[in-house]
Design a protein around this nucleic acid. Structure first.
Lengths: 339, 339
DNA sequence: TTGTAAGCGTTATCAA
DNA sequence: TTGATAACGCTTACAA
């Protein structure tokens, strides 16, 4: 029996309360929880019974402090709209959970002090993943990178920061060539803002490459958020004649679907009058008419890969870096002109 | 100047390193961060400069331990598919962030030891919200409820646990009556598993009530997950004649859309041959043809409400409980038979 | 197999 | 305005 340091404060039972009740030292209680085999059967049972009766739950912060591990990974995302981020988080959480780590999610959109929040987060997790589109300042990335392992997701290529993403440029080129060559489209427009996110930029690069390969010049991108309202606006502009094209390569499905819908309402036929393509292959893409031609990416796998990678470097900093991109595939449906 | 307790370990700078560098005590460094006005301008500037130079970030666990607050809220969800959970999380995170709290997300689906994870989570957060569909054992809820404030989201009515949800039964009754009365449907089937989640159960109750109000008896529910594959299976069964109905009231949009799509492929006309309705009003619902009649819920607001509520009870346990349900609205489109 | 005791890196109380 | 110092609730050598 050990000297109890405090009177049984109401609220949460501590390891001291359990130790006292069970007539053992706090070290033994700790052992019962973390290395049960180092404790005799009898003692273990007695302690476990008390733990159960008192609903004892170890204080996470105290545990983290003593064990020098937060047992948590951070994930920084711009937002959660659409299927992309949710899938990413699902894969990430799953990998984290398998390693006994919780996931702390930080959404940066609409947060004026996102960089401060990211720095703060770095003090509460063992490692973190930053989505490129979250627009965390490179200086912040560098600062926290010196404290905890940090990787980027679909981010810009920063010095010394691993970057994991799905393949984008090649698929965008393939898709664009398909429109240009197979469907003979003459005037394509890329809808999306390359400056907003590195992966959108890579898609636009593929768009440009496809044109270049045919000796043509790609039009500059038509700026648009990856949102429904941006899509409606694009459709309006198109119908109003402010935009002229026979093919719209949209940066994601949400945008593409909104565009298609707006076009259809104005009597513009897709794909006859204008082809439309998206990116992500979310569920709705195959449920609308015409079906949306798009690019499928293994986003959940990407999240899982990154979660596993964080676990890897944490376990051993020398762990070799895995392949940092995942293959995507073009999914042809009717919106591009395919039968 | 204070006695430095440790040699400057590589990796993370501690408050001691900052104090030493700035020639002040750790207490002063702490004050600079938490109550800057209690420190003289000169000292503050000097300390801040060092903090900046060293990229000092306070150790979250140490801070939580000393300050007796984790500065984190937990959110337990079954999964993240569809727009519902992502919206919920977005609202929740936003409210948490405004209160300086991080959000720890736990996904229970496919986790054999979800209850253990939830208990563990209770030791790392100041308060938590549990989604009803996450199927956390009531005994677990009770156990952790004695340690930290806990509320349920769209959950079952448990003794002593606040439950927040969107209104369901009334809207389901209204929707069902609309099908029965306005469209003269004679044979409706509810597609979904009431036992899987309390809010699905409440929707089915509304379905039953509508029938009862007309002196009819509702058919038992047709079990189905809220998933695309379940929807395909339902469509197959319908086409195969295993299910007979002139109206399908589906538990959510994902399910409804998959059913509609499967039906359309088999040449069954919606709504002529069979009406279909969903729940959630996600984006795709208005982009498919025919548009999906569904129920719109303010899910993001719900998440925000719950986050605010946790902040409220934490700040003052006597904070009066806010209204615990949010209104929903039936959205009529063509899939129910409306023009 | 068990207990003692020294941290872990902060916050906050009390003096100075 | 600042500095000592005692918690905070654990983990983990090291002893016994």
């Amino acid at each position: 029996m050990t000297a109890p340091r405090r009177q049984p404060r109401p609220g949460r039972a501590t390891i001291y309360a359990v130790a006292e009740e069970a007539g053992v030292s706090i070290a033994t209680v700790s052992r019962v929880l973390s290395s049960p085999d180092k404790v005799s059967q009898r003692t273990r049972d007695r302690v476990l019974a008390v733990i159960d009766r008192l609903h004892y739950v170890p204080h996470g912060a105290a545990r983290s402090l003593a064990a020098r591990a937060h047992e948590a990974y951070g994930l920084v995302l711009p937002e959660l709209r659409g299927p992309y981020y949710a899938e990413l988080l699902t894969g990430f959480e799953s990998a984290a959970a398998e390693r006994g780590a919780s996931v702390v999610v930080l959404l940066t959109l609409d947060k004026p002090t996102a960089d401060v929040a990211v720095r703060r987060l770095a003090g509460r997790v063992d490692a973190m993943a930053l989505m490129g589109g979250a627009k965390v300042d490179p200086s912040t990335v560098a600062a926290i990178g010196s404290k905890v392992p940090v990787v980027q997701l679909a981010g810009a290529d920063l010095d010394g920061v691993e970057n994991y993403s799905t393949e984008s440029t090649d698929s965008a080129r393939e898709l664009t060539e398909h429109l240009l060559v197979d469907h003979g489209r003459r005037q394509l427009l890329f809808v999306g803002s390359p400056a907003d996110a590195p992966d959108v930029r890579r898609r636009y690069e593929g768009f440009v490459e496809a044109h270049a390969a045919l000796g043509r010049e790609a039009a500059p991108p038509v700026a648009a958020d990856l949102s429904e309202s941006a899509g409606q606006e694009i459709a309006r502009a198109f119908v109003a004649g402010e935009l002229s094209a026979d093919g719209l390569v949209c940066a994601n499905d949400e945008l593409a679907l909104a565009v298609m819908h707006g076009l259809a309402q104005a009597g513009v036929d897709v794909p006859t009058d204008v082809a439309v393509t998206g990116w992500d292959d979310w569920m709705a893409a195959r449920y609308v008419a015409p079906g949306l031609t798009t690019v499928r990416q293994p986003v959940r796998d990407l999240g899982r890969l990154v979660g596993e990678r964080l676990g890897g470097v944490l376990a051993d900093p020398e762990t070799p870096e895995p392949s940092n991109w995942l293959p995507t595939s073009v999914v042809l449906r009717r919106s591009c002109g395919c039968p």
